[in-house]
């Protein structure tokens, strides 16, 4: 549905994104992940035909973003980083204006607006002036604006930025509902959000794609080492030494007394050895389990590794 090839954009001498290529299928929910200034917003601006790329091509449903921008704009809904709200307008009028801008026929405008007001739970705010609404409501009006014409593709740039935790949960729920019937591209630097909503992640760092994969695949791929947690009943100082002496163990750290984290090489499979060791020395094993790394770790790792490459 969306094909991006060798996309680059530079602002003067500064290259915001370099040779991005990826594809997004119909019905997918894809997360753009990257630190601030990685090029997420630039990419989204290009996808929504607001800004032309310096080079490369983007095709959405077979339409070229540069040549056939008007066609594409009919089928996308875009929520920029700052929601494009007229602070002096009433919510209902604003949404009706957005619907008319996106070619919703006059006779369907009312039902379209009422539908998004319902979906985004804006009912009690619909006759209020946008400038007086709380940030959470404004963000919801922003999302409502993007979907008022029922577009096939929703592009949401940091939809939960600046919201309080309850509002974040609400918006997340809304996006999950929308995901059932729309193709959604979502950017964020908040990781739990991506893990909860997206099936596939595109990680951008320094304007380049660091990884494109499903979350599971990313987790396995990036688990270059394995980590075990060991809990014992009887603590003594020799444990640390004996663990470190084991083959394939990279590092051992003691967090609390009798609680150790063991970093070992990938596929080391040393649980048996540790258990044997514990039996022989009567440490009294309480817990021994592998930990999978969270996306946070992956994210940190990715961006850190990217910057280490000369």
């Amino acid at each position: 549905m969306i094909e991006v090839e060798q996309l680059s954009k530079s602002y003067g001498p500064r290259e915001a994104i370099k040779n991005l290529s990826f594809q997004i299928e119909k019905g997918e929910v894809v997360g753009f992940l990257g630190p601030n200034g990685a090029g997420k917003s630039t990419t989204m601006n290009i996808l929504s035909c607001i800004m032309p790329a310096s080079s490369g091509s983007v095709k959405i449903c077979g339409f070229d973003v540069f040549e056939q921008a008007l066609e594409i704009r009919k089928i996308i809904g875009y929520l920029p980083e700052t929601p494009p709200l007229y602070s002096d307008m009433v919510v209902y009028d604003y949404l009706a204006f957005a619907a008319r801008l996106r070619h919703v026929p006059l006779k369907n405008t009312q039902s379209a607006v009422e539908k998004v007001i319902e979906k985004c739970s804006l009912k009690e705010a619909s006759d209020r002036i946008i400038g007086r609404l709380s940030k959470g409501y404004q963000q919801r009006v922003g999302i409502a604006q993007a979907m008022v014409h029922n577009p096939d593709i929703l592009i949401l740039d940091e939809p939960t930025i600046g919201l309080d935790p309850i509002q974040i949960i609400e918006i997340r729920k809304l996006i999950q509902e929308l995901a059932l019937s729309h193709t959604i591209i979502l950017s964020s630097h908040i990781l739990p959000e991506i893990t909860q909503i997206c099936k596939r992640v595109i990680i951008i760092s320094d304007g380049q794609i660091a990884a494109v994969d499903s979350l599971d695949a990313l987790t396995t791929r990036l688990r270059k080492g394995e980590r075990l947690v060991l809990n014992v009943r009887r603590n003594n100082s020799e444990i640390l030494e004996k663990l470190r002496a084991l083959k394939k163990v990279n590092a051992v750290t003691e967090h609390q007394p009798a609680n150790y984290t063991i970093d070992c090489e990938p596929n080391a499979d040393i649980q048996d050895e540790i258990a044997q060791l514990s039996l022989n020395n009567q440490w009294g094993i309480v817990e021994l389990k592998p930990v999978s790394m969270t996306l946070e770790d992956i994210f940190l790792k990715l961006t850190l590794e990217e910057s280490e490459v000369p």
């Binding site: 929504s48 035909c49 607001i50 008007l70 066609e71 704009r73 009919k74 996308i76 875009y78 920029p80 494009p84 709200l85 007229y86 957005a98 801008l101 996106r102 070619h103 604006q145």
Partner: peptide
């Protein structure tokens, strides 16, 4: 808000 107009058909 110009983004709203620019992203509209």
């Amino acid at each position: 808000t110009f983004a709203l107009l620019l992203s509209s058909p």
